[in-house]
């Protein structure tokens, strides 16, 4: 079905791939975090209006981007599990949910902390903030569904349908600031003309974004390994793995 990628779709191969990739992803992500945080907190100049308070974007913006990216990964792998019965895609989707929820929470919390001094309020019910809150509830709903249904394959199927139905929220979050008048400002980096952020501030932001993304894949590798072992606990290779672990 997926050509040369097919062999990695076998749970055992994917488990080993995750095992070998995990440490590399973690190490590179840690390095990028150090560089990005130094760039954001020390190297970048303070803003002409907000002073140093603007530096919260180095956590807020990457987590908000990741909150949407993780959801898409979760929904797409859920769909692949539904249609092509790819075994590992259920494990990937299931591993995504708590991570995505954490990124969403981080985006909401940091935004709220910034909003109090800058806007004058912790929270407003404008389209951007409300749709991001709905995203958090979608993740919670997915996790609750996984916990409530005992049969793993049934749970994966129900979760995939929920994730797909909620997918419409992603473009709504992204375009909310353009479609409706909101208190949240419009896009800075992803608009058509040049980003309206000074280069010295933009570079640390992009490094932080990369760090967040690699962190996600590193943790996804770890979580997916656990999920696969649990899912395949009756297969021979997992039993062998367990025996080897006890012996050595």
């Amino acid at each position: 079905m997926f050509g040369p990628l097919d062999k990695y779709a076998a749970p055992e191969r994917f488990y080993l791939l995750c095992k070998s990739m995990g440490p590399w992803l973690s190490a590179i992500s840690l390095l990028l975090f150090l560089v990005g945080l130094y760039g954001g907190l020390v190297y970048a100049p303070s803003d002409y209006q907000q002073g140093d308070s603007f530096r919260i974007i180095y956590v807020h913006v990457p987590s908000a981007w990741m909150s949407m990216f993780v959801y898409v990964v979760m929904a797409v792998s859920g769909a692949m599990g539904l249609i092509w019965k790819v075994k590992i895609s259920d494990a990937i989707a299931r591993s995504c949910a708590p991570l995505g929820a954490a990124f969403t929470f981080l985006a909401l919390a940091t935004g709220s902390i910034w909003g109090k001094p800058m806007w004058g309020t912790w929270w407003v019910w404008d389209a951007r903030l409300t749709s991001e809150l709905i995203l958090l509830f979608l993740y919670f709903g997915y996790m609750a569904l996984q916990a409530a249904i005992e049969d793993r394959r049934m749970a994966a199927r129900a979760g995939a349908i929920l994730a797909l139905a909620g997918l419409i929220n992603i473009p709504i979050i992204h375009y909310s600031v353009e479609w409706w008048s909101t208190l949240h400002q419009g896009p800075t980096v992803s608009k058509m003309d040049a980003p309206s952020i000074h280069t010295s501030m933009l570079i640390p932001l992009l490094i932080m974004f990369l760090a967040f993304k690699l962190y996600f894949f590193a943790v996804l590798c770890m979580r997916a390994r656990c999920e696969i072992i649990e899912q395949e606990k009756n297969s021979r290779w997992v039993k062998q793995l367990a025996r080897g672990g006890v012996d050595s």
Binding site: W119, T121, Q185, G186, K191, S196, S200
Partner: peptide, 28 residues
């Protein structure tokens, strides 16, 4: 009853904002 500030999407160091103002360009 309540007044909130709406921040815009522009981020720049103070020197750049000053230079823009001196050049007569209005910050959008």
């Amino acid at each position: 009853k309540e007044v909130l500030a709406k921040h815009d999407e522009n981020y720049m160091p103070p020197e750049v904002a000053e230079a823009l103002e001196n050049a007569g360009a209005e910050v959008q």
